[in-house]
Structures are given as C-alpha cells and as structure tokens.
Design a protein around this nucleic acid. Structure first.
Lengths: 138, 138
DNA sequence: ATGGAGCTTCCAGCCATTGGAAGGTCAAGG
DNA sequence: CCTTGACCTTCCAATGGCTGGAAGCTCCAT
C-alpha cells in the first residue's frame, strides 16, 4: 500500500487501527455515523489514513475512555480544530459530562448501598428465609 | 373485562400495568423474552392477569430498580418461588451484582476524577488554550 | 499462479426499552 | 343499533456503541 498522498505516507485502516488504538471495524463505524470525515481512497477502494487522521482517532479514543458520548466528542473535535474557540465552551462540555457521571454514580451507589444492606442481613445459609427476597417481594 | 378465572378477578394488561408499575409494553416484552410466563387469554385474545402475576411484575420492577439484569432476575424469581431454596444462593446472586456495581462505579468515578482535574485546570474563558483538549490530544 | 492476510460492504445482534403503525375489541352514550 | 374512543393485539424500527459474521475483492510473498 503506502500510497503517497503528497504529504507523507498513507496507511491502510489496519495500520491506522494499530497506530490509534481504535480497531478497524470501529473506525469504519465512526466514519459511517459522521464522527470522523470520510477517509480518502486508493484506486481500488481501500481507505487511506495519514498522521492527522490518526491523531483524530487517538483523540476520539481518549475521549471515549473518559466516557464522553459520540455527540459530545463531535463537539470536542470541532472545538479542538477551531483555533478561535473559547476554552469556556470546552469546559462547558466537560462539566455537562461530569454532571452526568455524578448522576450515574449516585444512582449506582444507591443500588449498591441498598443491596449491601440486604446482603448483610442475609444469613446466606441453607435455609430459605432471605431478606433480599423479602425486600424484592415488597 | 373482569374475566372470572376461578381464583379471583382477571385484569387486563393495562390494569396489571397500573397495579404493578410496569407499563403494558414492557410486560409484553418481558413475556416475549421468557422472563415471565405467558399470560392467560380471553376468548378474544386479551391477556388476563391475576394478583399473583401482578406480584411477579412488582418483584421484577423492584429488581430492575436495583439494577439487576434480566438474566439474574430470572434466577431470583426462580429462587423466590422455590420453597426449598438456600438463602446462600440468593445472596450469591446479590453479591455478584454488587461486584459489578462496584466495578462500574469505580470506572465512572475514575473518569469523573480525571475530568474534574482537567476542568479545574481549565480557565474557561474566551481564550483557546485548554488543558482538557491538550489531554485529549495526547 | 496460488495462498492467505487484509480490505470492502452489508446485515444482525447485544441490553432494556420505547415508539409507532395497522388493525381488532370493548363499553358508554346518543 | 351505531358511533366514538379507549383499550387491546402483533410486528417492525430505533436508541448507543459497539462486535461478529458472510461474501467477495485486492495485495503481496512465495
């Protein structure tokens, strides 16, 4: 492969996957939903990636690791590539996400706390009597 | 409606929904995936529910509220209706779920902590410089 | 020339739900 | 008796963020 795009060596989707940590299937998916722009193609139809596309993929990967949803990542990529951005906009996106994380954490922690209490009260032996089931049965 | 099933009044799916807190659509779905047994039917094909079916629905609802997945709820319902169960089995199911909740909470909390640090370091003003984007860009 | 690795597209499934369309049924009011 | 409208039925599609597989094409080394 190694198609010369004029600004450096082009890599296949597999190479871009290795370089970015985003697997090939997912790269195609991201392209299909418009999260990343359509990749260039060789004459035979293979997608071609350069260093800057790989950087975008790495950015997306890191953002996903932090739990951002696709839509927000789209906004973040847009801001990242906008030299006249305000950091306040970026911060707002981050704070929104933090709020959602907090809400989810609180929800899960409430479940855990309730269950912990019920499990602590359960003898966990061969007898049928069980506070967990008593609670679930209302 | 009010079909006499011989053990009390039968209710429609809408009444069962109101009585259990599980909406009609979801009741049908639960039946379709085998979480709950197939409901009886009137001559004209309407599903019929009695008090014990409503109790199962309430049990399922409560278990979902505690975050249990469908498969585990199936096990819990089975144990609930098994008079020769061991409470240790119920407890094991609960503890498995607690472990998963803990893992998820830890994952989300790690995201939140990282983001909080980045957001705290971000000026959030009209300038483009932003630690959040710097982090994401690697 | 052949083999196999890698590329292409498309389709389907995961989880637990929700929404909608198209059509049948029931009870109340005129 | 007939209409209205609330309810019921089934089926199909979408959500988010992937993952897997099938069928077919291309590239490169042997």
């Amino acid at each position: 492969m190694n198609v010369d795009t004029g600004v450096g060596m082009g890599m296949t989707i597999g190479d871009a996957a290795k370089a970015s940590g985003v697997n090939a299937k997912l790269i195609r998916y991201y392209e299909s939903i418009g999260l990343i722009p359509e990749a260039g193609r060789t004459a035979s139809g293979y997608r071609v990636y350069g260093p800057s596309e790989v950087n975008v993929l790495r950015f997306v990967k890191r953002a996903r690791t932090l739990g951002f949803g696709i839509e927000r990542i789209q906004r973040l990529v847009g801001l990242w590539q906008d030299r006249s951005r305000c950091s306040s906009e970026v911060k707002r996106v981050a704070l929104e996400h933090i709020d959602e994380l907090e809400a989810k954490i609180a929800e899960l922690a409430a479940m855990r706390d309730t269950l912990r209490e019920l499990a602590d009260a359960c003898h966990g032996d061969e007898r049928p009597e069980c506070p967990i089931l008593r609670d679930l049965a209302g």
